[in-house]
Design a binder for these strands. Sequence first.
DNA 1: AAACCCAGCAACCGCTATGGG
DNA 2: ACCCATAGCGGTTGCTGGGTT
Length: 332
Amino acid sequence: MGRIPCCEKDNVKRGQWTPEEDNKLSSYIAQHGTRNWRLIPKNAGLQRCGKSCRLRWTNYLRPDLKHGEFSESEEQTIVKLHSVVGNRQWSLIAAQLPGRTDNDVKNHWNTKLKKKLSGMGIDPVTHKPFSHLMAEIATTLRPPQVAHLAEAALGCFKDEMLHLLTKKRIDFVGPATPAISGDPRVAYNADANVNDDKEDTIQKIKMGLSRAIMQEPNNDKAWTMMGPTGEPSDGLAGMCDMYPAAGDGFRYGGTAYGNDGEGSAWSQSLCTGSTCTGGAADQHGSGTHEKGEDDDGEEAEGGKAARKGDTSMFGSDCVLWDLSDDLMNPIV
DNA sequence: AAACCCAGCAACCGCTATGGG
DNA sequence: ACCCATAGCGGTTGCTGGGTT
């Protein structure tokens, strides 16, 4: 037996609400409150399901709702909380944003923020760099299994990458050299990226991954948490610290990412894998904690070494994360 | 000008939690 | 303790309008 429907679907209207319907619902609720949603449409003279009325009210008609653009600080809050609670607690995130609904937050995340992070080469699920995830796969597994698993993992963010590579130009701040072609983020640094062939791109990604697989594990240069001006953050375990950024461009850690000269001027240090939930934990697997960070959140040798800037990805003015040299070097 | 594509958003679906009888 | 109605929630769908070809 199936679930009992919340209402007779044949007798209810669906789809977009008209202003007249909104008025009826709003005025009814203003007089009688929101008790018993099942009775509300009948009493208010609406051909709608009670559930539909409730959603319309909670997501759109409630007088305390904000309907404008999300502010910088609201975006910061969403990213910060998402890095901790993941996709499972939209209502919790929305509760921290007065006037925003979970639906608002979810939509904004799916349409804007996810792409912003992807555009920065950061996996929006784990809040870690794509390259780092690849490196994790490469260094925690051995062939032949690694080849299959790596392929599968690659598929997870291949579409995102291809979208960025073929649809959107992203101008990163930093040296303009496309020398490190093994890293996917560099592929769309060049002006000529629009001409990149999709298959060629996939091939490059695969080559970088294959090369990493062939190397010994080298996690001691794992990416590290940095403050807004490049100084190391305290690296609070279990929390991703947000830093207000000076200057333009989308910032994540100490690196500014311009987005055609405009974009959010906010920043975030990188979230440690230990705090990510949901799919993040699944992808990391157990026992893959960063060598650059101890279990209690303190940085170990690798993190300290990375902060010296010797292997910074984009140059001295933009320290973000450090990776195995093998992933950074050009594929010969 | 028409066709097509795509991003954004409102609304819906279906599952789970909760509370009352 | 159980059942049922309702509310809450996250995931997904599909419409719409703007931009591009």
